[in-house]
Design a binder for these strands. Structure first.
Length: 502
DNA sequence: CGGATTTGACCCGCGC
DNA sequence: GCGCGGGTCAAATCCG
């Protein structure tokens, strides 16, 4: 039952970030005058939120079941969505013997059913819109590719533009036989290419089409070798059969900074430390951890304190879990996924992207932080800065030579925007018009939903995030038969998320 | 005693 | 080619 509580907490993580005393202490405190208690390990998604969440475990369970039915009929989000509206308010009356209450309860139940229907149709609409646009984009890029190939055969190195970019970004989890090579000379001048590939095979036709496209492309038929971390060759060779889907996502990172005295943050996963090194320019050592929740899980994380402010803990996650995640880890994964999706969206370097982000941002009543894209880093990295107040609208700032910074609604809808179709930050030749339009339409749709029911928003966001961002929707490892009751924990499309507490 | 951590060595990419 | 730095490995050590 604790698990349900965790999920509940997560989906209200926006409120969590505001309400959690420990967090707010940190977030509102930039002077270092923290009242937080020192913990050995900071639990970002603390389970102890019962005071905020009325209802017994059983009640929570019921509410979770009810809400999960909302999404699993059409889309397996892999999440047991729970909204405070549909869940708690209903259940609060369950035990009341009063008939009037009962009838009122039924009425509310019906209302919620209607609401669920609407939301489901909305989701369908989004899905349909997504597919349509996807098809359009594919067609367009295909056309362009054919044209360009005739003209530019042999000039690929000089034109890392839209075609390659679009392919990279559109190709989600390349089939084993289709692998994107970010080291392809034609794109090697821009490492952010790596983030273009995202993760979803949710739309079956998509992967097929994309695979087709990729296989058509010269230079894309190279094997997954180039996708694997060049620094971990063994990782890809040891388990070629199962690593293939993972490898392409290893390089994108999401880094989260937060204030914490704790040496580690609790993200629900089990980690084993495998190394520690002194990083240049930082007196604090960097620790390397790998996920030990499942054999061969490629996820790793780095933990390091900020050199400038040692109260800031920087944790960087990288890779996708190849196993079901416990609720707490699911929360983390979702958050990471959202951030990574933002990274993957690449929308942030284009004016459209920025405007889109900033335009939808006000619609999120949830935790927002600063996300900084760093295209100049060795790996494309998105940094979530939780060291600032959650609701502080910060001016754009740059932490690296040319990153784009934008407010990031942590558990909000950036996943939508972060769909693999979107361009990478440094890809100016992306068919940005289509993408921009898609952004806009999605944002509008999504914000409309948000406006109607903020509580549900977070849950829906997570659902959509999972739906659109789950890298291995077809491998069955995460979305099916999850013993922990987390069918299909949101998987981060190759991300690293650094979480720190405020 | 088994699992986790520590830590020096090693590998590899990159820049000069 | 060489050195540097990041990342990983694996033997030694620690700890419950």
């Amino acid at each position: 039952m604790d698990k349900q509580g965790r999920e509940l907490v997560f989906f209200h993580s926006g409120d969590f970030l505001r309400q959690n005393p420990g967090v707010s202490d940190h977030t509102n405190d930039s002077s270092g005058d923290h009242t937080r208690s020192i913990t050995k390990e900071v639990d970002f998604f603390s389970t102890d939120r019962t005071s905020e969440l009325p209802g017994t475990d059983q009640e929570k369970r019921i509410s979770t079941i009810g809400s999960s039915s909302l999404v699993d009929s059409s889309i397996n989000t892999g999440l047991n969505l729970l909204t405070s509206n549909s869940g708690i308010s209903i259940i609060a009356n369950v035990k009341n013997p009063d008939n009037n209450e009962l009838s009122g309860l039924q009425g509310e139940l019906e209302r919620l059913h209607d609401e669920n229907k609407k939301l489901r149709s909305l989701l369908d609409q989004i899905t349909k819109s997504y597919r349509d646009l996807q098809a359009q984009l594919i067609m367009a890029t295909q056309k362009q590719t054919q044209g360009n190939r005739i003209e530019q055969k042999g000039e690929l190195n000089d034109t890392p533009g839209s075609i390659m970019s679009a392919q990279h970004l559109m190709d989600p989890r390349p089939r084993p036989s289709v692998t994107l090579d970010v080291n392809d000379p034609s794109v090697s001048d821009d490492k952010t290419q790596e983030v273009l590939v995202s993760s979803t095979n949710t739309v079956g036709t998509k992967s097929q089409m994309l695979g087709k496209r990729a296989s058509m492309e010269d230079g894309l038929d190279q094997t997954s070798q180039s996708w694997g971390s060049s620094k971990s060759p063994k990782l890809e060779h040891e388990k070629p059969d199962e690593q293939t889907p993972e490898v392409p996502f290893r390089k994108a990172r999401v880094s989260v900074r937060a204030r914490s005295d704790a040496p580690l943050i609790s993200d629900g996963c089990q980690w084993r430390k495998y190394g520690q090194k002194m990083a240049k320019g930082n007196p604090c050592p960097r620790a390397y951890y790998r996920c030990t929740m499942a054999v061969g899980c490629p996820v790793r994380k780095q933990v390091q304190r900020c050199a400038e402010d040692k109260t800031i803990l920087i944790t960087t996650y990288e890779g996708n879990h190849n196993h079901p995640l416990p609720p707490a880890a699911t929360a983390m994964a979702s958050t990471t996924s959202a951030a990574a999706a933002m990274l993957l969206s690449g929308s942030t370097t284009s004016k459209e992207g920025l405007s889109s982000s900033s335009s939808f941002y006000p619609s999120f009543p949830y935790a927002s932080t600063m996300a900084t894209l760093s295209a100049s880093a060795p790996f494309p990295t998105i940094t979530l800065d939780l060291t600032q107040g959650p609701n502080t609208t910060m001016p754009f700032h740059r932490t690296s030579p040319s990153p784009a910074t934008f407010p990031l609604p942590l558990h909000g809808f950036p996943q939508l925007l972060g769909h693999p179709m979107y361009a990478s930050p440094k890809l100016p030749a992306i068919p940005s018009v289509q993408l921009g339009q898609r952004h806009a339409s999605m944002v509008e749709t999504v914000t409309a939903a948000i406006a109607s029911d903020p509580n549900f928003t977070a849950a829906l966001a997570a659902a959509i995030s999972t739906f659109m961002g789950t890298p291995r929707s077809s491998d069955g490892a995460n979305n099916h038969n999850a013993p922990s009751g987390i069918p299909g924990s949101p998987q981060l499309p190759q991300s690293c998320t650094t979480f720190s507490t405020n």
